[in-house]
Design a binder for these strands. Structure first.
Lengths: 175, 175
DNA sequence: CCGATCTGGATGACATGTCAACCAAAGAGG
DNA sequence: CCTCTTTGGTTGACATGTCATCCAGATCGG
């Protein structure tokens, strides 16, 4: 999946700058394993939360931010930045969540264009119901298999990659 | 996002088995960083391939498998297993790819129900056009920031987590 | 050979995400 | 003030993913 093997015969030690730097077998293996791992992880977390509660994992993420914040009340763009979602995705999603009664809108008096998102009681109940099993699964699938050392390593690795992306030519989602 | 902080006051050293094992601040930090990292990574790869070629990253993944296989020809379920996609997702996606001329169907004589998927010339051209820049970006974003040691570490980590999921109570996508 | 069941796969309804275009309020700059 | 640009946010069309259901061909037990 999303793979990157050399599709053609093999000019093994090429220094041709027009020839892309194909992945070595070891790199290839990491890339595939990594992708498969994160994909399974996502899928399991999504499936579990969907199956055992009334909300999706996307709802969950939104609600998490809202419970983390004073009065359960945030500006939409603040939310978008926090979640790193495109604003249009967020807009659509918030509309659906309003329809389901998980959140409400509130007018923003300081800025006539803006609007606030507020968590409702139903929303609070929903996330409180979903959270414990979710954390448990995160632990089981992600933390339990790792040693303390590996946790440290993975932290550094993630920070490295993330850091590298922040200064990348490719536009980050418009923030 | 998809967070797991303790939503309430703090019974720090609780051994209550009904109380979920909330994440420590360090774990929390890793979890958030990791999720953000993989999300950015995905987004960038998807955006780039979409912008610079005629295919999506999903198309790309499918085509990769097809170019990896004799005669560019695979059974649908084989493809599903390889990609770890649900069969219905795959079915829909293949239909779209046929419509775009990237692949074709071929009858399966050994098994009357089954069908083969075959890559077309257009499909081959499409992936060959997309691959070099894609690998290059994978390198830039993922491998270049890491030391050799970290590559080794991440390989082990990914294998660990993936391994743990294979024997998990939660159903893996029906394979 | 025959029904019961399993398997490979397609389908429809629906949830979700993306892109581009739009809109109104807020800040410039003159 | 009065345009011009920016910003915060929504919208519609469309691509994609999920779930449940369906269906025909294969297999299995007699």
């Amino acid at each position: 999946m999303t793979s990157t093997s050399r599709p053609s015969p093999t000019p093994t030690a090429s220094v041709d700058p027009t020839e892309p730097r194909w992945l070595t077998p070891a790199e290839q293996h990491l890339w595939r394993t990594f992708m498969r791992m994160r994909q399974q992880l996502d899928a399991q977390l999504a499936r579990q939360i969907q199956a055992e509660s009334d909300i999706s994992i996307a709802d969950f993420s939104v609600l998490v931010v809202l419970t983390d914040v004073p009065e359960g009340r945030v500006r939409v763009l603040e939310l978008a930045r926090n979640l790193q979602w495109e604003k249009s995705r967020l807009s659509h999603h918030l509309a659906r969540m309003v329809k389901r009664g998980l959140i409400e809108r509130a007018e923003c008096t300081e800025d006539g264009r803006g609007s606030f998102v507020v968590i409702t009681d139903a929303g609070r109940r929903a996330i409180e119901a979903a959270a414990p099993r979710h954390v448990e699964l995160v632990r089981t699938l992600f933390f339990d298999p790792l040693s303390e050392e590996q946790v440290t390593q993975l932290t550094q690795i993630s920070e490295r990659i993330l850091g590298a992306m922040e200064g990348c030519p490719e536009a980050l989602s418009e923030s």
